[in-house]
């Protein structure tokens, strides 16, 4: 079996002595798209951030392609939540995408025209070619999300970790993101998305990880997204689960 792009073993993370992730073990399969699903406050974003070393883990073992992250930084691209930055920053869309190339450009060297061209290509991949020179403050929420995605694409990574890319975006952006996921997969890449919308998990992703501080289930969506598992993840919010049950049973066979 090939080494998984991301393997997490018994990861524990706590904020101010409150345990947020509890003995989490996840194995991400190469060449597939995986959704991390769970209720608010389940630690979905925390899982990504801890994997990337952005927040300290109390204990646990994380490996990317069988080694530590610093050995394969260029193979891993991160798409943070859109709300995590100040969009009033004085840069345009192309400048932000070019940030994905900074590592390749290296210390102290400026962004040259070849990099700007690469940034434009990445923007075109998310359907934003016409917005390269637009100030980021003047983009809509969905467009900002696509700029973030383009920045990760410019990195030409193998594994993409995305934090809620589908959160409150318009239909055009949703289509653009889905097309990108498809393209990454066709090129042999792997995608992990924190995802909030239970209804679309089965439509958009191959695998799912159900998380609520601990791992409830993981594997192909068809096996994971069962009413039983969802009840274990979402607890008492049964109305939601029951409603989904009917939706899921109709949507999954239709796709296969």
């Amino acid at each position: 079996m090939t080494t998984p792009p991301l393997q997490i073993n018994s990861l524990n993370v706590s904020y101010h002595s409150k345990l947020v992730l509890w003995d989490v073990g996840v194995s991400i399969q190469p060449g597939r798209t995986t959704a991390i699903v769970g209720p608010n406050g389940a630690g979905k974003s925390t899982l990504l951030k801890a994997a990337l070393g952005l927040i300290p883990a109390s204990s646990g073992d994380i490996s990317f392609y069988g080694g530590p992250l610093r050995k394969c930084r260029s193979r891993v691209a991160y798409v943070p939540q859109r709300e995590s930055v100040d969009w009033d920053f004085p840069v345009n869309a192309r400048d932000v995408v070019a940030m994905g190339l900074y590592r390749r450009i290296g210390w102290c060297l400026p962004v040259r025209s070849i990099h700007r061209r690469m940034a434009d290509e990445a923007l075109a991949d998310v359907g934003m070619a016409d917005f390269a020179c637009r100030q980021i403050s003047q983009l809509s929420g969905g467009q900002q999300q696509r700029v973030f995605l383009a920045r990760a694409l410019a990195q030409k990574a193998d594994l993409y970790l995305m934090d809620e890319p589908f959160a409150s975006v318009d239909a055009a952006t949703e289509q653009a993101i889905l097309a990108v996921l498809e393209r990454i997969k066709n090129a042999g890449g792997t995608v992990v998305c924190v995802h909030h919308d239970l209804e679309t998990v089965a439509q958009y992703f191959d695998d799912a990880v159900l998380l609520n501080m601990r791992i409830v289930a993981q594997g192909p969506v068809i096996d994971v997204m069962t009413p039983e598992n969802l009840r274990k993840t979402y607890g008492a919010r049964l109305a939601l689960v029951d409603e989904l049950e009917t939706n899921l049973s109709s949507s999954i066979p239709a796709r296969k």
Partner: peptide, 22 residues
């Protein structure tokens, strides 16, 4: 001036800078 792009990235998006190895 030398660290212009590094400082800009730090100011705009620190977590991303960190995740890409700066």
């Amino acid at each position: 001036i030398a660290l212009f792009k590094e400082f800009s990235l730090l100011c705009f998006d620190e977590p991303y800078a960190r995740s890409s190895g700066w």
